[in-house]
Write a protein that binds this DNA or RNA. Structure first.
Length: 249
DNA sequence: GTGGCATGGACAT
DNA sequence: TGTCCCTGCCACA
């Protein structure tokens, strides 16, 4: 489930639970060497797109990427035994367990800088530049549906957001990104930042604030707006969903 | 119980 | 462009 909005939410919750605390770090599964983290004080956590960084005082950061299948579990009682397959447990006043990430590694400041350097602006970060976001989108090669899930263009958008955002913008996913006007690109960025902020606060994709559990087109048979059969296609290697009537490019 | 797929992305080719 | 991977969920037997 992890697109950028959930990583930001997780970073904020993990920070609230653990920042300022020394943590016991372990890898019940054994696939991560937790020794360098064990006993360190967490200073905070932040997200860059779909990447999560847990910062440690006077030490490296723990870099986590959940991929498609990873998840965090939070245990208010830190003595709760971990379930199977826990790659990393950080236990302070609360325990956080990391399951099935694609990445769990330690990064020093240079490594963190390199990572951030591979990413485009993150619509959920206060330090994101809208100008740069617009420029990167409009100079991206290929369809807009590929560009906005390219983490080097915009960081944090995944397949579900792609479908819903392009519906809200009434853009056909296969429209060339380079054909968007400055205004269209800026509007899409604003829409993305607003929508994903709602999603972060709600803990799920929200594309209609009056019906937060509904989707317009994502994984639907028919468009929730007009009832037309939802069109699917492979865009950037993933299934895109769009309304053939309302998203004409 | 089993198999295929998936809200990602790295890497080989 | 294709392949592989870490697990959870669902449809189906």
């Amino acid at each position: 489930m992890p697109e950028g909005h959930l990583l930001h939410r997780t970073a904020s919750e993990l920070s609230a639970d653990l920042a300022g605390s020394a943590v016991a770090a372990s890898s019940p599964q054994g696939r991560f060497d937790a020794a360098p983290v064990d006993g360190c004080t967490v200073t905070g956590a932040e997200a860059y797109g779909k990447h999560l960084l847990v910062h440690l005082q006077d030490g490296p950061a723990v870099h986590v990427h959940l991929g498609m299948r990873g998840l965090f579990l939070r245990y208010p009682d830190p003595a709760t035994p971990p379930r199977g397959g826990v790659r990393l447990r950080l236990a302070g006043p609360v325990a956080w367990d990391l399951i099935a990430p694609t990445t769990c590694e330690l990064l020093d400041a240079a490594g963190t800088a390199r990572l951030v350097g591979t990413l485009g602006p993150d619509p959920l970060r206060a330090d994101a530049s809208a100008q740069e976001a617009v420029a990167r989108l409009r100079t991206a090669r290929g369809p807009v549906g590929a560009a906005i899930v390219d983490q080097a263009v915009w960081a944090g958008v995944g397949n579900a957001w792609r479908a819903e955002l392009l519906f809200l913008a009434r853009l056909d996913p296969v429209t060339p990104a380079s054909s968007l006007s400055q205004e269209q690109a800026a509007q899409l960025w604003d829409l993305t930042a607003r929508s994903m902020a709602l999603g972060r606060d709600a803990g799920q994709v929200v594309s209609d604030p009056t019906a937060p559990d509904e989707r317009w087109v994502y994984k639907r048979e028919t468009c929730r707006s007009c009832g037309a059969p939802v069109r699917t296609a492979q865009v950037a290697g993933r299934t895109s969903y769009s309304c053939p009537v309302e998203q004409t490019g």
